[in-house]
Design a protein around this nucleic acid. Sequence first.
DNA 1: GTCTATAATTTGATAGAC
DNA 2: GTCTATCAAATTATAGAC
Lengths: 211, 211
Amino acid sequence: MSVDSVATTENSIREAARKIFLEKGLAGSRMQDIADAAKINKAMLHYYFRSKEKLFHLIFENELNNLFCNLDEILDSPLPILDKIQLIIERDINTLMDCPQLPIFLLNEMSQCPENFLRCAHRIKAFQRYEKFRAQLEEESKQGRIRAVNPDQVFLNMIALTVYPFIAKPFLSSLFNLCERDYAQFMLERKKEVGRMVIESLRPETQTVMQ
Amino acid sequence: MSVDSVATTENSIREAARKIFLEKGLAGSRMQDIADAAKINKAMLHYYFRSKEKLFHLIFENELNNLFCNLDEILDSPLPILDKIQLIIERDINTLMDCPQLPIFLLNEMSQCPENFLRCAHRIKAFQRYEKFRAQLEEESKQGRIRAVNPDQVFLNMIALTVYPFIAKPFLSSLFNLCERDYAQFMLERKKEVGRMVIESLRPETQTVMQ
DNA sequence: GTCTATAATTTGATAGAC
DNA sequence: GTCTATCAAATTATAGAC
């Protein structure tokens, strides 16, 4: 248990707020529900965090940071690009299986209020580090070890294939007719599926035989 | 202009409600804002649609149907599977460039209230039609024209690569440092990028030379 | 059908005792 | 720091005149 997880009132409010906000979003959450979940009085929320918006932004920024410091470590490592890609995919799928509501929570609030996101985006290390990923892809491409690509398209492909199934779970589990257990298995299979797909898309064209 | 677009009060409310709900979601929308957008009185909303929830579900189900009747046509066509895939990608990107908020609106409300979605999912033709897509992929695979695949993974890959960039636009345009115009161009490039990627992932393994 | 006025309830926030 | 009580504003919904 980390230092900021000691059972203070402030921390129990944070935990409760995280739970409720992740579940219902900013507009859908009630201060009363957070107070109930934290088993304290509604007035305490304002004593510690002044307003609903302030409390929300604290949770939002914290979740954003957690997710991306995860990414930052890998981007900054000295690993070859293909290893990095496979590692990012596996780390992301693991993270999201623990907290499947995270992406839709973050993305919905980013859409709703891009300014709030942009205001704290520059503080996220992984955002600068992304340059390194770009440069590494371009270098590998110049050396002919991978095909000539737009690095942004590659990064997007990787994230899309990894994150989307968590966002669209109600839709996909209905379409594919998968129960909770089977959907989890399906997600585990994706570590290979996505890795294979992204890495394959980077293979130099001259080394493949088409049709 | 279609028959249900004649300028009645009811239709102007529908249009206004669509605009506001797509922008802010159910919890974030105010009946007053819808009334203002429709340039009528708040009381009229209840006269025509009884409650906010009823109005919302009408909009939600309508948008869901529109999106999927789009898909249904293609799935039901007699085209070869690779053509269908390319067509779905292009149609989806075109549709979403016209209405970029659509996926996050639908997916957010599906996550928030899966029951409301499941209740009307069985009425969507594309849902039954999906069996045809599955069968077609399996047949092609049996004939050796494409690699052995899990059809659900293939369908998911296609949708994820197409839809995700619209959901994550604020995040991605910041990370990639793209202005509005450049982001649109980036989306247009994806028609080829996604098509190439999905179709390549189906190429039989024996016909490729690795490393 | 359309409007004004208003009821009924919810909700974020504060005052003030302990 | 914590609680009870309460305010003020917002918000869905309805009543009733025209």
